[in-house]
Structures are given as structure tokens and as C-alpha cells.
Design a protein around this nucleic acid. Structure first.
Lengths: 336, 336
DNA sequence: CGCATTTGCTCAATCGATGAAGCAAGATTT
DNA sequence: AAATCTTGCTTCATCGATTGAGCAAATGCG
């Protein structure tokens, strides 16, 4: 790995020499509190000019070593490659920067070991705060960080030891289920019980969505057997093979499906293509997630959009108020 | 912003005191070269145990300040929220970690000023190397980094001052155009010239794709006027309003369209929905980009998938060989 | 004019980890 | 027994920026 630096970097000592002053003055000028330190305007301007000429860049490592707060804010995300987490990350970066934080983001691919390793790395980089997004074990992260005196906030999936900001999964799922049922009525003339595809039985979001799913069936007086629920995980391959198996198993099968995420939807659609009927038009689908292209292309696919801007706004609110009591904020999702 | 640290962090000095030894020994043990420094196995084990008991986390800032290479590798990306850049970022992180780098990623939303600011921040964090992905002005980034002795590599869009890794846009566009023309033949019985929607006239990728687009028309002996090209930028809104305008302008209009990215496709589909004919089925579309859900849902949408794994493999190859000569590697994209 | 205050700086310690140099005790050689 | 080598540490300077303390010169005040 030939990444040898070409030349030595310019430091405040170099600038001090060039300006005929002290490193202390240079530091004061460049980090903006030259007024507080009673540096004359002329000297300040001279130093600023020389720094620009020399292309000086602050050494953050040195600066952070000395300061007590880093203003670095870490975020752990399970995946980048879907619109939900993509928009979380993108908006988080923007908002963090606006509020004077430096965002440090790590993707842990739903791997519990990687999550812990990533949290540890963030502690090493002296983050002031860690956001655990969709973490498989958020409380583990909170414990680890607490040991170093670093606060955490859970996003998307809740934990018991830190404040959590999640979607109102129950209400969202109930309304989504209602819409799928109505769509079934229109399309097929009847309201059969739906299938629930994707997610992990143990995770809070899946459990709450299932509760909403069941409630909506009850609202319409429809009996729902547990065997309509296929919580096979989020991965497309798992959903695909679970449906394949189900279709040939003799167990009940529905044309109406509640799909737990766009990731899972990919597997459902693959199954529709390969092993199922000709087109997804013969199904009534609903997805607890949002993707603009699916919204445009999937005529018969209802979508729930989690309100990312509201969730992140709430998150920064908690940070700014120093509120790190464990409690859950539920943010209503948006239905198109 | 109440992010006050709760307690003081454990340092090697604390550990040294607890172990009844020196900070130097602790450091040697914890960073793995205790053998080289002739520390006895017993002391090493004792220190390791105490460090674990205390939940010690290395202070990277202090460590990096002392070392000459940071092993931090920075990446600048225009957007997170589409599958192409999402997969670039996710795979980059994984590969960087595997190779012993610490990935530092920043999203600059195609804003030239933010790009420069992000590059400057990365220099402050002492990155060993910067990857400028889809940068609006990659050479500016290279110059800035070069002044600090930091090498750069361009990804997705080429620059003149650093090695660039891009898709073979010409060949990909030529083949994609051919497929759209064939699809038009099947669908509409004739081969009219296509429209080209999205991208910026000035950017290298758009220019090369246009060259492939023109070549494919020539291959089929089809005359192509310049007014079929609508390089209105990548944003959905721009594509949507450009099509709206075009449809009412009296200028020629085609049912076959070459769409420059999934981002632009979103605008095209919105236009189809709102102002155009009933369904996208009445069009023959091709998109120079890949999205698995579009591939599954859009029956009449041809897609080109840029070969992200091959591009990143090439990138790390360059880094490992210390090859920073400005030259362009073209990676063939994959057509489904 | 003499004393107090303000202005405009510099000095030096510090943050935590690293590693070259050095040193004492024990082992080995002559 | 003296000389040399090896083992297993410790000491201390260093990385670059920050900041409390301090100091000389300039200014204000009675």
C-alpha cells in the first residue's frame, strides 16, 4: 500500500515562523477566537493570508486530542443500498453538518459482531454521541458506549437503555393492511385474509406491524390464521424461497400480501416472475417501506413511507436538549 | 448540545498504574508489537486482561497524531439514495475494512462547494487517500489534496490529474440504444430515432453515452437530429418539466427513450403518469443504470448495470500498486 | 508625573500514544 | 572472574493544537 505522503504538512509552527509570530497566536487566529485572545486585527489578517497562501489544513487529530468535545457524531446503519436507509444517511449527514457536527457513518450489514466493532471504532475516534440505526442489538451498543461515557440514541429499532425513535408501526401497518384488503375487494371481489411476508419474528418493528396487520383483519371481521405469516427475514432470497415452498406446500395462500420492506419486496417480485403467475397485476401488494420508482411502476403496490425527516428532527431535538432517558418516540408514517 | 462526557476515559497511563508498569509497555502490548519490544508474555497477558476489564478504548486521535500514516481512506459521493451509489458506498466500506483501511465517507449532493469543503475536512482528518466519486470537479479535489501530499483517485467520472475508473459508457450506451431500437421495432413495428433524456451536456459520461447513442443509430442507418437530446441534468424534476415542455413544443417526440440514470427515470415516469399517456407500456425505455426493483417491475425498461465490484477491485489495485498516474480505466458494464 | 488598566502578544504545560535510546539484572562466553 | 550478550523493562521526547498564566509596552486617569 504505497500511500506515502509526498511532503510534510504545514503546521501552525511553520505559519508562525513565516508570520514572525508565535504558534499560539496562529492557533488563536485560525480557530476564530483571536478577539477573545486579544490578537490585533492586522496580525489576524496577516496570519489568515499566509495560511491561505500555504494551503494550510488544520490537523484534526492534534486539535481533537486537546479539546474535550470532538463534535463528531457517529451513526451505525445496517445497509446503504435501499431508499429508506439511503435517505436516512443522506439527511443525517446534511443535518449533522448544519448543526456543527462531523458525521461519521458505518454500515454494518445487519451483522451483530460488526455493529459492536463499529461502535468500538467510533469510541476510539472520540465521538460525542452514537446513533444506532436498525441495530440488531441496540442495548449492547448502548452499554459499550456508556462505559466510555458516550450517549446513544436508537433509530428505527428500539432498545431499552437509550431513547428510541421509531415509526408508528402499529398504526401504519393497520392502515396499510386496510388498504390492501380494500384493493382485494376491488380487484378480486372478496376479502380473504392476507399473507404477511418478511421480517424477523423477534424484532420489535415486525411484531408491531403484525399487531396492526391482525387488528386490521379484526376491524373487517376477517379471521386470520397464524400460518399466513411468513417472517422469513428481510433478504430477497429468503422471501423468494419461502414463497416457493409455501405455494407447493398445500398451506393456504393469498393473492393479497403485506410485504415488510422493499428489500423483501424484491424477493416477492422475483418469485412472482419466476415461479408464480405471469404478472404482479394478479396480486394486491402492500409494502411497509417506500421507493419512488416502485410507487411509480407498481400500480397495485400500496406503500407506507416512514417519515425520515420527522424522525431525524426528533433525534436532533433529543441531542440538543440533552435528553437521554430511555423512552420511545413513535413517528407516524406517511401513506401516499 | 448537552453531550458532556460522563467520566474521564481510561488511558494507557491508567492501565499502566493498575498493572504496576509503564505506559510504554501498555502501548506496546495493546498495539500488538510487544514481541518486537521484548515484553514478557506474562506482562502482556496481564495488561490485556486489565485493559479488557477496564473497557479500554484506544484514543485514535492521540495514536494518529503520533503515527505517520492514518490508514484512513476518504470517499466523496454525490448521493446515497440510489442503488448505484448505495452499492458503491457499501462495497467500498467492506473492501476498505478488509484491507485494513478505515473508510470515511461524505455525501456532497453534487454541490461543488461542498465537494471542496469535504475534501478539506478529509485532509484535516489526515486521510491517506481520497476517492472522488462522480465529482463535479475532480481535478479541483486532486489539486487540493496534492497540495497536502495526498493522492486521489476518480471514480465514475474522470479527471485529468489523477487515475480514473469509469464505466465503458460508449459501448454500454451503444448496446443499450440498440436494444431500445429493437424493442421499438417489436413494439411499434418501426425504428424511429430515440430521445436521450437526462445528464449534463458537459460531463464526460453523458458525452460518451451520447456518442454510443449516436453510433447505434448510425449502425441501423437511422438519421438522428440533435434536438432529440434533452440533457437537462439528472434531477427528476428537471426531466419531468423538460418532457412536459417538449411534448407541447411541437418539436419531434419519440416513444423510445434513452434515460441517463434511475434518478432521471423517476422524472420520466412521473411525466408519463401525470401528463403523458396512460402507462409506460406505451413507451420503450432504456436506462443507463440499474435498480433491481425497476428491473422486476418495468417490463419494457432495458437496464445497464455498471460493474461496481469490478470498478472497486480496480481501484484498490491501483492503491496497492501505488499507481497514481493519471489514466483512465474503462470497465465494461453488464446488460441483463 | 506616578500608578492602574488595557492591549497584544509569548511561554510552557497539556492532551494520549508511540518508539528510540538507555539501563539494570541475569545468562553466556572466554 | 571479567567481558559480552540477552532479556525485560523504563525514560523521555515527540506528534500539532490549545489555553491558562504571565509579561512588556501602551494608554488612561487623577
Amino acid at each position: 500500500m504505497k500511500l506515502d505522503r509526498q511532503q510534510k504538512r504545514t503546521t501552525i509552527y511553520d505559519l508562525a515562523e513565516l508570520a514572525g509570530t508565535s504558534a499560539s497566536a496562529v492557533s488563536a487566529v485560525l480557530n476564530g477566537n483571536w478577539k477573545k485572545r486579544r490578537i490585533s486585527k492586522q496580525l489576524a489578517e496577516k496570519i489568515t493570508r499566509i495560511a491561505e497562501e500555504q494551503g494550510y489544513a488544520l490537523n484534526m487529530q492534534a486539535s481533537l486530542l486537546r479539546r474535550e468535545k470532538s463534535h463528531i457524531i457517529g451513526m451505525i446503519v445496517p445497509k446503504y443500498d435501499n431508499r429508506y436507509f439511503g435517505s436516512i444517511v443522506e439527511l443525517f449527514e446534511t443535518m449533522a453538518r448544519d448543526k456543527g457536527f462531523f458525521p461519521l457513518i458505518t454500515c454494518t450489514r445487519r451483522d451483530p459482531a460488526l455493529e459492536i466493532e463499529a461502535a468500538r471504532a467510533m469510541l476510539s475516534y472520540q465521538v460525542d454521541c452514537v446513533i444506532a440505526t436498525g441495530a440488531t442489538d441496540p442495548d449492547r451498543v448502548t452499554e459499550l458506549c456508556a462505559a466510555a461515557g458516550v450517549r446513544t440514541i436508537n433509530l428505527d429499532l428500539p432498545g431499552k437503555l437509550a431513547p428510541s425513535i421509531i415509526s408508528d408501526n402499529f398504526a401504519g401497518a393497520r392502515e396499510l393492511t386496510r388498504r390492501i384488503l380494500v384493493s382485494c375487494q376491488h380487484r378480486f371481489g372478496s376479502m380473504e385474509p392476507l399473507m404477511f411476508v418478511g421480517g424477523r419474528g423477534g424484532d420489535h418493528n415486525t411484531m408491531e406491524r403484525l399487531r396492526g396487520f391482525r387488528q386490521a383483519h379484526a376491524d373487517h371481521g376477517i379471521d386470520l390464521d397464524d400460518d399466513r405469516v411468513i417472517a422469513c427475514g428481510y433478504a430477497p432470497e429468503k422471501a423468494q424461497s419461502a414463497l416457493m415452498e409455501r405455494a407447493t406446500s398445500g398451506l393456504p395462500f393469498s393473492k393479497g400480501m403485506f410485504v415488510n420492506s422493499t428489500i423483501t419486496l424484491e424477493g416477492v417480485l422475483r418469485w412472482v416472475r419466476l415461479a408464480g403467475p405471469v404478472s404482479e397485476q394478479e396480486f394486491a401488494l402492500g409494502c411497509f417501506d417506500y421507493d419512488p420508482l416502485v410507487a411509480l411502476l407498481g400500480d397495485n403496490i400500496e406503500m407506507v413511507r416512514q417519515d425520515v425527516p420527522a424522525m431525524l428532527a426528533r433525534m436532533f431535538e433529543l441531542i440538543e436538549h440533552g435528553n437521554f432517558e430511555p423512552n420511545v418516540s413513535e413517528i407516524p408514517p406517511v401513506l401516499r
